[in-house]
Nucleic acid binder design. Sequence first.
DNA 1: ATCTATATATTGGATACCCAATATGTTTAT
DNA 2: ATAAACATATTGGGTATCCAATATATAGAT
Lengths: 112, 112
Amino acid sequence: MTEKDECCSNIPDCCDMRGLLSFSILWLLTKRDMYGQELAEELGKMRGKRPNPGTLYPALQELEKRGLVEARKEGRKKFYVLAESGRMGVVEACEYFCTVYADIFREYGADE
Amino acid sequence: MTEKDECCSNIPDCCDMRGLLSFSILWLLTKRDMYGQELAEELGKMRGKRPNPGTLYPALQELEKRGLVEARKEGRKKFYVLAESGRMGVVEACEYFCTVYADIFREYGADE
DNA sequence: ATCTATATATTGGATACCCAATATGTTTAT
DNA sequence: ATAAACATATTGGGTATCCAATATATAGAT
């Protein structure tokens, strides 16, 4: 608790680690439907920093436009739901991702 | 073995998985010094596709400019070597990376 | 009604990464 | 010396992600 607020805040300054936002969003949506601010919070927990609205909302619109997610409004909240193609795509993407970076995880992941 | 040539060629079309090039380069250089074409080949094995020269060389120049790698010429080959700051940075980056995507690896990585 | 908090969205600008195509050197072979 | 092969590099154009700052719209409280 003397640490930062959430999970990992050791954001490296050597490589900016940009990328994989859409991938992370799709993966989070396999857990449950979420609206924008929930996604922002979960992304913040994962990566140590919430994405800015100017980053998040265009990404969501793009995923919606491509038919990977669908939106359902509830009051002022707009819940994003994985579409059929998104659900298949994200599994494929996760498998690819894990294969590509398997060695890195073998060395630095695992415990802790 | 009936599969594709190298490791993973199931490049997903749902999310483009762009990003992490500099990170991957730094990580490869923890294994051994490499020149451009070697890096291109190793990146091709990792990700299923070699980066184009117009992608790779600017990235290498940027890493050199920022002092994370140093270059040593041997004939026509230009070997890239992790600099001090690069070696520390890449460990930090690997730990960050593994923390951020730990859950995805737990689900889709591990065996196979 | 009006104020506040919440949630979505846009604007403008920057950087990293991606490509195809082409150009410039440097060895090696003939 | 000239050609072929190898390696590095550049050009021009595109997309995804990143930011700070601002705008709009809805809901709940008073």
